[in-house]
């Protein structure tokens, strides 16, 4: 799928829990075919934003359009159709613990598609291989897998229906640096091969450098800036300077200052 038109359009979003306002007047557009990284300090509502777009959290105000459908206006049937066009990877995979990895991947296929068993099994095996899991992983239960493997399995499940858009909630959190780098490459490769649009909440500066086309920074209850990495590095806002030029940022991109100069 080529670049063209926003796939997600958020206008004037407001989220509030009790007295605490999380988002106020938040605008964001996600373009088709891009990898958008969403960053922000703890408590700036990155995950809340993801949950709001996917409909797990009802906003106080504002308009969210996904695939040109206003989420507040859609009928239940349209909503189900929309949900099949996106996949979500939760932080620890959120696999169903009573099912094997392959059965987990088959859940959305069973629920939404009238597929014969042999075809479902073949496609589940295909997805398992696509996310880089060994074939033995298919018949294992989530409790028998490592954290990194659970994330890969969760990614395979989110790809089960071949969605156009996937949401990743801190995909590299809790992985060792090698595992995290591999996961980044996997996301990048799948995005390229399948023409996915990726909405990724992350804290990982390496991921931002390595795979994100654009970065959206959440601060002061809204999206402060959106743009490619180079824009982030030039931006003068104190939080951005600290985030992208702090000691860990230097470690992630050793020749960072030379890049700017």
């Amino acid at each position: 799928m080529s670049l063209g038109g926003p796939i997600i359009r958020i206008q004037g979003l407001k989220n509030q829990f009790g007295d605490q306002v999380i988002h106020e007047d938040l605008d964001l557009e996600v373009q088709a075919g891009e990898i958008l990284g969403v960053v922000g300090g703890s408590g700036t509502g990155k995950s809340v934003l993801l949950r709001t777009i996917t409909g797990l959290n009802k906003p106080r105000a504002g308009r969210i359009e996904v695939f040109d459908h206003d989420l507040a206006q859609v009928t239940p049937d349209e909503r189900i159709a929309l949900e099949q066009r996106w996949g979500v990877l939760f932080q620890d995979g959120a696999l169903f613990s009573s099912l094997t990895v392959a059965q987990n991947i088959e859940v959305p296929m069973k629920e939404h598609l009238d597929m014969p068993t042999h075809l479902r099994d073949e496609i589940a095996a295909l997805k398992i291989s696509m996310v880089g899991l060994p074939p033995e992983a298919g018949s294992k239960y989530p409790s028998e897998l490592s954290g990194g493997m659970r994330k890969r399995a969760g990614l395979a499940r989110s790809l089960a229906l071949d969605p156009d858009l996937i949401f990743l909630d801190e995909p590299t959190a809790g992985l060792d640096p090698v595992g995290a780098a591999n996961f980044d490459q996997l996301v990048k490769q799948l995005q390229k091969n399948l023409g996915l649009t990726v909405f990724m909440v992350t804290h990982d500066l390496d991921s931002l450098h390595a795979i994100c086309d654009r970065i959206a920074v959440l601060a002061e209850k809204r999206v402060l800036v959106v743009g490619p990495m180079a824009d982030m590095l030039r931006h003068g806002h104190p939080w951005l300077r600290e985030y992208f030029h702090g000691p860990r940022a230097r470690a992630a991109q050793p020749n960072l200052d030379e890049v700017i100069e």
Binding site: E122, A125, I128, S129, M130, S139
Partner: peptide, 21 residues
């Protein structure tokens, strides 16, 4: 685009067990 998709699929032809025996 379709060639890339067919290649991806061919590269991942790797059958697996669905349930433990």
């Amino acid at each position: 685009e379709h060639a890339a998709m067919l290649e991806t699929v061919a590269a991942n032809d790797q059958p697996c067990e669905i349930e433990p025996p």
